[in-house]
Amino acid sequence: MARITARSKTRTRSRTQEQSGRPAVAGRLLDSAATLSYDPATEVDWETPLDKDFHGASPEWSTLYGTAYWSDLTDAQRKELTRQEAASVASTGIWFEMILQQMVLRDIYAKDPTDPKFQWALTEVAEECRHSIMFARGAEKLGAPPYRPHRVAVELGRAFKTLAFGEAAYAAILVAEEVLDVMQRDWMRDERVVPFVRTINNIHVVEESRHMKFARDETLKRLENAGWVRRQINAFVIAIASYVIVTSMVNKKVYRNAGLDQERALAEARANQHHKSMMRSSCSGLMDFLASARLLTKPALKFYKRAHLI
């Protein structure tokens, strides 16, 4: 597992913030980043050749796990499939992290650089940059080609990063981070998963916990004075963004690249009740949060159900 590096001791920032009335959440996150951060370039074992006796992700998270096709696969085929799926999830993570970075930078543009929220936002962007490079190197080491979302998803993402603001931006960030977080918490503890992927997952889980805290806090703050119409519109936008993100995680090309019959694999994956159940159970906490923020409107629920998040 990755070694936690202490960049500096926690200083007197929290006390100073209390005295000055500066934002407590951003200050605590800055303290956490100062004491609990990683450098993937040195923490991850990039030199050891890929050991194909390991999975790329916990088998139970495979889109084919529990299907008739899964039963027909050899152990080697199952491991190759999970490696390709893990690489696809990582590639989708890079795509969304690039959207996230642009939304965060746009949100703080021309604001007070002495504000802890401003400094935390830059810290989060820096961490996301490291994560994206880490995911890219990890996918390459898994022996996967560059997976990209469908062209429609790419263009929708382009529009979203340009137009989304406030609670719509931060709640969508939260959805993407929480779904990935639940998967990776399983993968990082699973000794069937190749060690360097477990390290990558551990790094991402630790650092993304800060990002999720900030996204939750910002979502609630932006909604404090929101009226019914604004909530309805943003709930719908967030749900569509969530649907596009979640349905883009596993590229259909993973099956062919794993040596499988792509048409059969796609058909069985779409009907896989086990995987749908895994997604629903893993997102229960996220759905509770969205419900408490009054963002689970009837139109929004349709998209969450289609994505099997609820």
Rank of each mutant, 00 (worst) to 15 (best):
G143H: 05
V194S: 04
P59K: 08
S88L: 00
E85S: 01
I245N: 10
W120G: 04
Q119H: 10
Q119P: 06
R137H: 07
Y65E: 08
S282E: 09
Y304P: 00
L29V: 13
T63I: 11
W70R: 08
V206M: 13
Y243C: 00
M183W: 09
M134G: 00
V194G: 03
A33C: 10
S20A: 14
R294S: 13
A87H: 01
G138M: 04
E124R: 08
A144L: 03
A239C: 07
P146G: 04
K252T: 14
D190F: 03
A226T: 07
A241Y: 05
P49I: 05
E167A: 15
K305S: 11
S284V: 15
R158L: 13
I233S: 12
M134A: 03
M287T: 03
Q119S: 12
T162I: 06
G21P: 08
F196Q: 00
A291T: 11
A168C: 11
R13S: 15
A169N: 08
T82G: 08
M134T: 00
L301R: 15
F165N: 14
L180A: 14
R231A: 04
T67I: 07
A307L: 05
R270T: 09
A76T: 14
S284N: 11
I133Y: 10
G21L: 12
Y243A: 07
K141T: 00
A24G: 08
D217S: 14
S37K: 09
D72Y: 07
H211G: 04
T5Y: 14
D39G: 02
V175W: 10
R106C: 05
I245H: 10
Q184N: 11
A144W: 01
D31M: 06
T16N: 09
F96T: 01
P40F: 02
V175Y: 09
I238P: 04
N225E: 15
Y304Q: 05
D112C: 09
G143D: 02
A76I: 07
E128A: 00
C283R: 05
Q262N: 14
M134C: 00
H275I: 02
W61S: 02
I133H: 07
R83A: 06
A226I: 04
P195W: 06
A265W: 04
P40N: 02
A90F: 02
I203C: 03
L50E: 14
D107P: 01
V193G: 01
V205N: 07
L266A: 11
T82S: 13
E60D: 15
H150C: 06
R230W: 04
M103D: 07
